[in-house]
Design a protein around this nucleic acid. Structure first.
Length: 605
RNA sequence: GGGGACGUAGUUCAGUUGGUUAGAAUGCUGCCCUGUCACGGCAGAGGUCGCGGGUUCGAGCCCCGUCGUCCCCGCCA
């Protein structure tokens, strides 16, 4: 028997056709001499009628059928009687009157039903992933992910990008995230590493003259998981020669528009831009969620005396955090908030003043100015974040960057802002989707610092990665050695609704500059040569200026699907402890396998 | 590595101050039912209260440990 249609496609216009449907039994309704089966496949559900008068054999088989059995039904499609229409389903105007039913496979009683709306807990879902994936919501997520990836692939291909594969077994790079390692059988005590990203390969492809490269590619990072972080994840990785930042922004905006179009969202106009410093000042974070208003530094409207009363000082920012439409907080709500505020608020002598009404009572004129400065409307929640500071600590200001104590304060305020936003989401409703392009607030964050000071290692580390080109002016001014903290990088992030979607940069294409950066990162020339010798050499053979970016496909799919976690858009994800509950990985391996690989476990005592 | 939440029937959950035989819904099994679509009716089965230890006359409930899932911090160039 050959399937003629899928379970979601038949309509009133198909009435009278002889059809064969195959699929899973979603539900069964037994009325004695009349049995209804809802037959499900990925396209939808169609009702099958087994009438004892029409097909005694088919009816007899239907009596034995249970949920999740796989069956084939052959018969005539009938327009339903007007009294029996079901407007809730797309196929609700028709039903298949079966004269033949065959059970293609039976099913044990599943631990949970794909037909149920209530979903089982994560552990059970992951263990029986094939049942979970049968749920229409999951099927829709993966169909969406497919369409998004395809749209991006088509767009980039049309823009002249070539998809070129790069190795999964490559060499370990100790910087950055922890590597997943693969022991070599042929070379004792030697290891391959799974790539954290194809960074160097794609740069080599530029040196190779491919001009425009992309890849939708798996990357691996052995770090602890989060709702939006899996140890293996998929990047839309691209690189191009002779780009300005603008060139790359245009490509990314182009493929994101194509991708979102597939999800029924038409984005218009270019994405806004913001420098890293501005992001810190206005949002206290390098990935601002633009769905809620920015913070306001209101220190200029606070008198020195009032600053003193608030136990801060006029020299430090007073940051007003505004969350619209939250209304007054009760005493209990303010107490509960203490637990949500970042640890910094406690440990670094930073305080969140969340009883604005009381502040208004004490300082009516100044707080009226705060209201004006923040643009607060009636019913908006205002919280002031201040630093304890009778004396201003000495702040060494490097370049145009924020003084460190200011930055700490802005970042703490940013965390308070996010905590409030999360806690009162049901009141401000800014996170609720309306089904329009407005639901998606994109932002380019630019002018990242080149280096960040690592307090533990007492060294500068690359804020993006060590192949990022520094700003030419900073380079010419010799700041690489004189003032590393002031050096700007030609690096940029693409942010959506407070989630970092991707990160890229214009790369270094001159060997001398690359060597200088390695040195600035505290690497000797010998170390640099040992780790990146092949790359430094490649740079000497006519390397074109180049740059690129990589975006997380999983995160894009997650946001478009409105899913709370990456696990909803990855078919076989891992748990928070990086375990695959379905196949049960990782596992111990035999001594034989280990001996062959020249490895021996060292178990902690 | 640290903090938090959760773990009771196949599933989702309730379980009071520590006190008789641990409940509900749903699913499952059997019987009945020709217009249901979350079909309905009747009857029934189903429990290592995650695991180990402790306190107690008595523990699902209290204490200690441990395992698992989730969320967060650290970490993620």
């Amino acid at each position: 028997m050959q399937r003629t249609h899928t379970c979601g496609e038949l309509r009133a216009g198909d009435a009278g056709k002889d059809v064969v449907l195959m699929g899973w039994v979603n539900r069964r309704r037994d009325h004695g001499n009349l049995i209804f089966l809802d037959l499900r496949d990925r396209s939808g559900v169609t009702q099958i009628v087994l009438d004892k008068d029409i097909s005694p054999e088919g009816h007899a088989k239907a009596e034995q059928v249970r949920p999740e059995y796989v069956v084939a039904a052959k018969g005539t499609l009938r327009r339903r009687d007007t009294s029996a229409l079901n407007p809730k389903m797309p196929t609700g105007e028709v039903e298949l009157v079966a004269n033949e039913l065959s059970v293609l496979n039976d099913s044990r009683v599943p631990p949970f039903s794909p037909a149920e709306d209530a979903i089982a807990n994560e552990e059970v879902r992951l263990q029986y992933r094939y049942l979970d994936l049968r749920r229409p919501e999951m099927q829709a997520n993966f169909a969406l992910r497919h369409r998004v990836a395809l749209a991006i692939r088509n767009y980039l291909s049309a823009q002249g990008f070539l998809e070129i594969e790069t190795p999964f077994m490559t060499r370990s790079t100790p910087e950055g995230a922890r590597d997943y390692l693969v022991p070599s059988r042929v070379h004792p005590a030697h290891f391959y590493a799974l790539p954290q990203s194809p960074q160097l390969f794609k740069q080599i492809l530029m040196i190779s003259g491919f001009d425009r490269y992309f890849q939708i590619v798996r990357c691996f990072r052995d770090e602890d998981l989060r709702a939006d972080r899996q140890p293996e994840f998929t990047q839309i990785d691209l690189e191009m020669t002779f780009p300005q930042q603008e060139t790359i922004f245009a490509v990314v905006e182009g493929f994101l528009k194509a991708a979102f179009h597939e999800a029924g969202v038409d984005l218009v106009g270019g994405f806004p831009r913001m420098s890293f410093d501005e992001a810190i000042r206005l949002y206290g974070i390098d990935k601002p969620d633009m769905r809620l208003p920015a913070m306001t530094d209101v220190r200029s409207v606070i008198s020195p005396q009032t600053a003193g009363t608030l136990k801060t000082t006029a020299a430090l920012p007073v940051i007003a955090v505004r969350i619209p439409n939250v209304g007054e907080l009760s005493r209990k709500e303010r107490d509960d908030l203490r637990l949500l505020y970042p640890q910094k608020v406690a440990t670094q002598k930073i305080r969140a003043l969340d009883d604005f009404k009381r502040l208004e009572k004490s300082f009516p004129e100044e707080m009226a100015k705060v209201r004006t400065a923040t643009g607060a409307q009636e019913g908006d929640l205002l919280v002031l974040v201040v630093a304890d500071g009778e004396t201003v600590p000495e702040q060494r200001v490097v370049g145009k960057r924020l003084p460190p104590r200011d930055r700490e304060l802005f970042e703490a305020a940013g965390q308070v802002r996010l905590a409030l936003a999360q806690q009162f989401a049901s009141r401000h409703r800014a996170f609720e989707k309306k089904g329009t392009a407005d639901d998606y607030k994109f932002l380019w964050v630019t002018d990242f610092p080149m280096f960040e000071w690592d307090e533990d290692g007492k060294t500068w580390i690359a804020a993006h990665h060590p192949f990022t080109s520094p700003d030419e002016d900073d380079l010419k001014a010799g700041r690489l050695t004189s003032d590393p903290g002031a050096v700007r990088a030609l690096a940029y992030d693409i942010v959506l609704n407070g989630t970092e979607l991707g990160s890229g940069s214009i790369r270094i294409h001159q060997r001398a500059v690359q060597s200088e950066i390695f040195r600035a990162l505290g690497m000797t020339d010998e170390e640099a040569k040992e780790r990146f010798g092949f790359f430094l050499e490649a740079l000497t053979y006519g390397t074109p200026p180049h740059g690129g970016i990589a975006l997380g496909l999983d995160r894009i799919a997650m946001i478009l699907a409105g899913a709370p976690s990456l696990r909803e858009v990855i078919a076989f994800p891992k748990t928070a402890k990086a375990i695959d509950l379905m196949v049960d990985a990782p596992t111990p391996v035999s001594d034989t396998q280990m001996r062959e690989l020249h490895i021996r476990p060292v178990l902690k005592g």
